[in-house]
Simulated assay, not measured.
Amino acid sequence: MSEQNQKETAKDLAGQYFKEGYNCAESVVRAFRDFYKLDVSDEALRMASGFGGGLGHAGCMCGALSGATMVLGMLQGRVNKEQSRGPVYGSAHEFHEVFTKQFGAACCRILNPHEFGSQEQRRTCLKITSTTAGILLKYLEDKQLLPTNN
């Protein structure tokens, strides 16, 4: 599969999950889990649920950004305290910068000021969610963090 086709697939899959009713964080995490066949259970995916709407509609950090950070954790996170948290911290910080440069902010209420549940809000979140999946894929490719089992 070409790089462009992979990028479009990641974007499309995240967008498809959002359209099906998953929130932004769930959509990004689920898309990468499914597309790259990551060893993440459905039960583990439940952790993404509270991040939608900028942490449960608090309007703070965008759920798509939170979901992307969770994907980085899936790929670089540590499983014990002896392991370094440096790689995932570095990637999370750097991706936050990439996201902020792309969208101009990381805060949900700034990115999407429309009333929750409105057509405008759904449209804006769909665009942010699918675009985030695309920029995450590019970031993972550039940093050579993509899993090799696909």
Results as ranks from 00 to 15, higher is better:
5 N>I: 14
6 Q>L: 14
7 K>F: 10
8 E>N: 14
10 A>V: 14
11 K>F: 11
13 L>Q: 08
13 L>S: 01
13 L>T: 03
15 G>I: 09
16 Q>G: 03
18 F>G: 00
18 F>K: 07
19 K>P: 00
19 K>T: 12
20 E>H: 08
21 G>I: 07
21 G>R: 06
24 C>S: 12
25 A>F: 11
25 A>S: 15
26 E>R: 04
26 E>Y: 05
28 V>Y: 00
29 V>F: 13
29 V>Q: 00
32 F>M: 08
34 D>H: 09
34 D>G: 08
34 D>P: 06
36 Y>M: 08
37 K>T: 12
38 L>M: 15
39 D>G: 03
40 V>N: 01
43 E>T: 15
43 E>I: 15
44 A>I: 13
47 M>S: 14
47 M>V: 15
49 S>T: 15
50 G>N: 12
51 F>A: 09
51 F>K: 01
52 G>L: 05
52 G>N: 00
52 G>S: 08
53 G>W: 03
53 G>K: 09
54 G>I: 09
54 G>E: 01
55 L>D: 00
55 L>E: 04
57 H>T: 13
58 A>N: 09
58 A>Y: 08
58 A>D: 00
58 A>L: 14
59 G>T: 02
60 C>T: 14
61 M>C: 14
63 G>R: 04
64 A>Y: 08
70 M>A: 05
70 M>L: 14
71 V>H: 00
72 L>R: 02
73 G>I: 06
73 G>A: 13
74 M>C: 10
78 R>I: 11
79 V>W: 02
79 V>T: 12
80 N>M: 08
81 K>T: 11
82 E>Q: 10
83 Q>S: 10
83 Q>P: 04
84 S>I: 03
87 P>D: 08
87 P>S: 06
90 G>T: 11
91 S>I: 08
92 A>R: 04
92 A>K: 11
94 E>Q: 13
97 E>C: 12
98 V>R: 06
99 F>Y: 14
101 K>E: 13
101 K>Y: 02
102 Q>F: 02
102 Q>D: 00
103 F>M: 09
103 F>P: 05
105 A>F: 07
106 A>F: 06
107 C>M: 12
107 C>A: 05
108 C>G: 00
108 C>Q: 08
110 I>M: 04
110 I>V: 15
111 L>S: 01
112 N>Q: 07
114 H>T: 00
114 H>N: 13
115 E>S: 14
117 G>E: 09
118 S>C: 07
120 E>A: 15
121 Q>T: 07
125 C>K: 06
127 K>E: 14
130 S>Q: 13
132 T>A: 01
133 A>V: 09
133 A>N: 09
133 A>Y: 03
134 G>K: 02
134 G>D: 02
135 I>D: 03
135 I>E: 06
136 L>Q: 05
136 L>I: 06
136 L>H: 09
137 L>H: 11
138 K>G: 02
139 Y>D: 04
140 L>G: 05
141 E>A: 12
143 K>A: 07
